[in-house]
């Protein structure tokens, strides 16, 4: 019998990656972490995923870059970043000295590009995992590797073989079968899959007969997409033998617990960082009590414990 008053063990294992707790912050929603150092205690985070980097700098898409929708936010930032050289010289020294695990998000234009980005980063040291962003809807070819199981397997395997850092694949929900893509990632040797990136959507100013976003279309995030991401986690957890990080509209502890029991070993907080900048701290503080409620002493004990009403 578990002692409900004991402090639960929050540590989680995803393939070769060990995290001190399952509350991470999602790429593109936390800058390069330094922006947040005055607002949150970075050392408490289960992991930091800075904004996606590319080989060359990208100015990103024209404004408007975000627009609020019902319970959600559409964005078309367009991977605005200064490129890997600037990341290594400017951001990595700060990020790698943080005690929280550092998971660097990369986006390439080809399988070789992913491999060379990974190799460059692996040389630097101080990086705990790579997250392959094969699911950005806001750049040309951003989802190519995330919408074809064979290509997904190829790019994951390429990166996996090129370095010793754990590899995560961040997948798009904008596919017919996310299970097939996740299986491709698992076949390629992914330590975990991150489910999911944003849902493709748009907003229109009908009086101007014009899309609101500068890129016409963008990715929907926030509480509006949580049921979709949760469904993806549930489906993949039951079909593919690969650890999962849940992402999508997580805004409170109930959301976190739903993703864990659905099959996610950890979660990433995204859009909620924008409108509740200390949300990650609150969730880390509240998590032990929720685990006590279930009478478990480790996070791992609840992962994937949901039962189907159909079985």
């Amino acid at each position: 019998m578990t002692n409900p008053s004991a402090t639960p063990n929050l540590q989680v294992q995803l393939g070769r990656l060990t995290l001190p707790n399952p509350i991470l912050v999602a790429s593109g929603t936390f800058g390069y972490a330094r922006e947040m150092e005055g607002i949150v205690d970075l050392s408490l985070l289960g992991g930091i995923v800075p904004k996606t980097i590319t080989t060359e700098m990208r100015v990103g898409n024209a404004p408007h870059r975000t627009v609020e929708t019902s319970s959600g936010l559409l964005n078309s930032i367009g991977l605005d970043n200064d490129g890997i050289d600037a990341f290594i010289s400017h951001h990595l020294p700060y990020l790698s000295k943080q005690s929280a695990p550092l998971i660097v998000s990369i986006a390439g234009s080809s399988a070789d590009d992913y491999v060379s980005l990974a190799s460059r980063l692996a040389e630097q040291g101080g990086i705990d995992a790579l997250e392959l962003n094969i699911s950005c809807p806001n750049v040309a070819h951003g989802v190519d590797f995330g919408s074809n199981p064979a290509l997904c397997e190829q790019v994951v395997r390429g990166v996996r073989n090129s370095c010793d850092i754990p590899v995560l694949a961040k997948l798009t929900p904008n596919v017919t079968s996310v299970v097939e893509i996740a299986d491709g990632a698992a076949q390629g040797g992914a330590d975990a899959v991150c489910l999911t990136n944003t849902l493709l959507g748009m907003a229109i100013d009908w009086k101007k007969r014009q899309p609101i976003l500068g890129n016409d279309v963008g990715g929907l995030s926030g509480p509006a997409i949580k049921p979709v991401s949760l469904r993806c986690v549930f489906q993949v957890a039951r079909a593919v033998d690969v650890p999962i990080i849940g992402i999508g509209g997580i805004a409170n502890l109930d959301d976190v617990m739903q993703f864990l029991v659905a099959g996610a070993s950890a979660v990433q907080i995204g859009t909620a960082n924008y409108y509740d900048p200390t949300i990650s701290m609150k969730l880390i503080e509240q998590l032990p009590e929720a685990l006590n409620t279930l009478g478990v002493s480790t996070v791992t004990e609840v992962v994937g414990t949901v039962t189907s009403n159909k079985s």
């Binding site: 936390f30 922006e35 904004k51 404004p63 964005n75 605005d80 900048p277």
Partner: peptide, 11 residues
């Protein structure tokens, strides 16, 4: 969208 430099909306 955030005011704190993390979302890159207000460019």
């Amino acid at each position: 969208a955030c005011g704190i430099g993390i979302c890159f909306t207000c460019v």
